[in-house]
Design a protein around this nucleic acid. Structure first.
Lengths: 127, 127
DNA sequence: CTTGTCCCTCACGTGAACGTCAGGTTCTAC
DNA sequence: GTAGAACCTGACGTTCACGTGAGGGACAAG
């Protein structure tokens, strides 16, 4: 498939896909005219990249991790890197949970009858 | 206290504190000479701001949320906003968990004896 | 009254992950 | 073979949360 199709399939912009290739995260075959062509598994690859971006990893870190995910590299260093990133994500989850609890407390307070809001207000907010 | 002390107490840079004030997230009294002075509760305020930044909220969103947290604003709109941000954080946590599980699977694979690494390798990576 | 440290306000620099033109080529369909 | 859609390569623009000087006041100590 060409880049436009991959973009619509994954919901990622064409520019982003070219950027991923620029960063070495995604590879493509080229037609005689220079156009990029992708295999079907590129879709999963893009999803994985997006997932790691969403987890707060940088392009550089993803670039380092991908060979491990592909099981092409398996050294003590690579395993240490994997664990380090997993732990970083764990810490981030903890932080997010704290923020979530904090917001939840505020929400509970703001929706309690004593806070001066009426039931109608609350219903209107839901609608 | 002055800005330097607040910075060291919170572990946030002086520049960041001034930036928070610029964004309307933090207020300060000024001395006759124009220097910022903070009350003790500014420390908690900064921690809260940092927590919300860590949760991926923008300055603008934090600016909108803070009056709710301070229980100074409690409208249907503000409650809807609080819930929206909480839900966003929930989704982010879900994404992070997925990424974490994915990494965990890779780690389990890379550390399994069948993957071609020796026990000594594994121990070395831990050290 | 000077020294040193802290503080002030501009204001430009930064890095990441793209967005967005410009100008030109390739592919598809009729 | 020609129109139009999709694609190409630069290359500059954007946003955010600050970093980093430049140049100059504020304030406690001696």
């Amino acid at each position: 498939m060409r880049i436009g199709e991959l973009a619509t399939k994954t919901g990622v912009s064409v520019r982003a896909l070219r950027y991923y290739e620029e960063q070495g995260l995604l590879t493509s075959a080229r037609s005689s005219g220079g156009q990029r062509h992708y295999l079907d598994d590129a879709v999963d690859r893009v999803y994985l990249i997006q997932m790691l971006y969403a987890a707060g990893l940088s392009s550089r870190t993803i670039l380092d991790l991908l060979p491990c995910v592909d099981a092409k590299v398996n050294t003590p260093q690579s395993r240490a890197m994997l664990r380090a990133e997993r732990d970083r994500i764990d810490r981030q989850i903890t932080q997010l949970r704290q923020a979530r609890e904090r917001l939840d407390a505020v929400i509970a307070l703001s929706e309690s009858p004593a806070s001066g809001c009426t039931r109608a207000d609350t219903d209107a907010a839901v609608a």
